[in-house]
Design a protein around this nucleic acid. Structure first.
Length: 586
DNA sequence: GCCGTTTTCGGCCCGACTGTTTTCAGTCG
């Protein structure tokens, strides 16, 4: 049993507890805190339990410690099983409806005997929900809308979709004379791989009156492409766009802007320890400011931006991407935060498909595009022979492709170097799709899985480990195979993959395609900690796909990578030397 | 359920908006 399974069980306890009628919100929070504590552990959970070292970890008291010990030693948690047995699954489903929380769910399910979403819809249409005490017509209407929304858009959105909407609205608001500062916040600013909604923070002059605020809010809710106005006030309004994504605007005075921007950037998990820290320094934080002292003698600690905000708390500036409660506050306190990699640090690209397999552009077109982007090397990695659907290259065609690359390298000399690579399939048994004597002739080899996704976790892990042990493999491509919002990755032991890659000197890519963003940023940091260099690879199938590097850089930053941790920030000579060293170590 | 250089009891991060209420509960982020 690993710590993630333990954390998941504790989170499930928290979710089920809040659906109990007499639930204490603080008990719920205790389990949520414990889940976070566990998932942030560096030590092996089984060893901690065996050695009795759970005690003393802040956030784990006697009860939760006992429950974790039961779970880890027996593989079961009787408390969780009792909660599951006592909680109708419909209550969990109803939690996904906007505007329905535990209290109302309990009222609905227990008093109206609702057992399915269809039951709830019928009860609304028959006005039985509105008749419940504390409910009314409008609440009932909101529930119906929530049901419809869940059916249509019960999912999250990929980063690029949300980014485009967010930037468009920011531009529109920035053009208004009432607006002083405006910024996209929320999970979008933190560059999460998917987002549920878009948060925008804007400021008006400190002396702006109610009429000015209303003008801004009218402008916001009156934008083209607004499908529905969810709520509208003078400090907060919420709309649903034609794409189905929800967008919130928070309006503050310009003096409040840095605090509000910080507040709405989140993550909530980052704020909780930060506020605790503030309290211990005799300060409090809310979205309108950082205050010293206690009510009613609060004194604003002036900050003109977030840098000063963190400084007032005795911390180095924490980049938005890092605000996930993953140890960033402790690192900021010690001044050990990394300088994060930026797009302009990239010197070349290593994972690009051409018309030789399933790409849309010729190598020459791709090379020109790389020159325009100021890159100095391009690794061409078409698919290998067994990938029929993607027009994988036979050994004969490889020979012809290499001749073309040689000609182009002569032509582009002094501007760009084209490297001979391959995205070689890892076959079912972990062997590679070209024989060793062919693999030996590439400048580098990306090995990826594109088939047999349903092997058992053990088989899938062994398959990957065998590929990593192959002395010709340079980079592991999209290591989990996930497609965001479509399918989970193949089940394998990613920690074992990282460990093996570190041992064999194999690089693991961040696949920058916004549907993949694989390796996940949570593991990027672990790979970095094991000394693995990470290439940021566009997996481009066209010139336009080269721009996906932008998303890969976001994930690299979330994974705490500095330029030195990224393979393709290296100048050509250094990259070639690294690839040759790999070859020589065989 | 956890925690303690004020506390072993009484706190626990904080505020906006909505709707059903006549002062506040529920939900959300």
């Amino acid at each position: 049993m690993d710590k993630n399974q333990v954390a998941q069980a504790l989170e499930e306890v928290a979710t089920l507890l809040q659906l109990k009628k007499d639930a204490s919100p603080f008990e719920v929070r205790a389990y949520e805190n414990a889940a976070r504590t566990i998932s942030a552990l560096d030590d092996d959970i089984e060893r901690l339990v065996k050695e009795g070292r759970l005690k003393g970890i802040p956030g784990l008291g006697p009860t939760i410690t006992r429950r974790i010990e039961e779970l880890v030693t027996s593989g079961r948690l009787s408390f969780l099983e009792e909660l599951r047995a006592a909680t109708p699954s419909i209550k969990l489903e109803l939690l996904r409806i906007q505007g329905l929380g535990p209290r109302r769910i309990n009222a609905i399910v227990d008093q109206l005997h609702i057992a399915s979403l269809e039951d709830l819809e019928r009860a609304c249409k028959e006005d039985r929900v509105a008749a419940l005490p504390g409910f009314g017509k409008k609440t009932q209407e909101k529930i119906l809308q929530g049901l419809a929304f869940l059916a249509e858009h019960g999912h999250r959105y990929l980063y690029p979709v949300a980014e485009a909407e967010g930037l468009r609205m920011r531009e529109a608001l920035a053009s208004r004379p009432e607006i002083v500062r405006v910024q996209v916040a929320g999970s979008l600013r933190r560059r999460r791989e998917t987002v549920k909604d878009i948060d925008i923070v804007a400021s008006v002059a400190d002396d702006a009156d109610s009429a000015i605020r209303q003008r801004v809010m009218n402008f916001f809710t009156g934008q083209p492409g607004v499908r529905q106005i969810v709520s509208k006030g003078e400090t907060r309004s919420s709309i649903i766009l034609a794409s189905g994504i929800q967008m919130d605007l928070r309006l503050v005075t310009d003096r409040q802007f840095p605090y509000a921007l910080h507040h709405f950037t989140g993550a909530k998990e980052h704020h909780i320890p930060l506020r605790r820290r503030a309290l211990s320094m005799n300060m409090t934080i809310n979205e309108y400011g950082l205050f010293r002292g206690k009510e009613p003698d609060l004194e604003l600690v002036p900050c003109k931006d977030e840098v000063e905000f963190y400084a007032a708390l005795g911390l180095a500036y924490i980049e938005p991407e890092l605000r996930e409660d993953m140890g960033e506050i402790e690192a900021a306190e010690r001044g050990e935060l990394p300088t994060l990699v930026e797009e302009r640090d990239l010197r070349g690209v290593l994972h690009v498909h051409s018309v030789w397999s399933d790409g849309k552009n010729t190598i020459r077109e791709l090379a020109e595009a790389c020159c325009e982007r100021g890159l100095s090397y391009l690794g061409i990695t078409d698919h290998s022979q067994s990938v029929g659907y993607a027009n994988g290259l036979s050994v004969e065609n490889l020979q012809r492709q290499w001749e073309e690359i040689d000609r182009l390298n002569a032509e582009f000399a002094g501007r760009l170097v084209i490297l001979k690579g391959t995205e070689c399939d890892i076959l079912k048994d972990g062997s590679l799709d070209y024989p060793d004597e062919v693999l030996a002739r590439f400048d580098f080899v990306i090995a990826s899985i594109h088939s047999h996704f349903t092997l058992s976790p053990q088989e899938q892990t062994e398959r990957m480990l065998r590929a990593i042990a192959n002395p010709y493999v340079t980079i592991i491509g999209h290591p989990t195979g996930r497609l965001l919002l479509e399918r989970p990755g193949y089940t394998l032991d990613i920690e074992a993959v990282i460990e093996a890659a570190a041992r064999h000197g194999v690089f693991i890519e961040i696949n920058a395609s916004p549907q993949r963003l694989d390796l996940d940023w949570r593991y990027v940091r672990k790979a970095r900690d094991r000394g693995i260099l990470i290439p940021i690879d566009p997996d481009a199938h066209s010139i336009a796909g080269l721009a996906d590097m932008h998303y890969g850089v976001g994930i690299a930053r979330k994974g705490w990578l500095s330029a030195a941790d990224v393979l393709n920030t290296r100048p050509l000579e250094e990259l070639v030397a690294l690839l040759q060293r790999r070859k020589a170590s065989r």
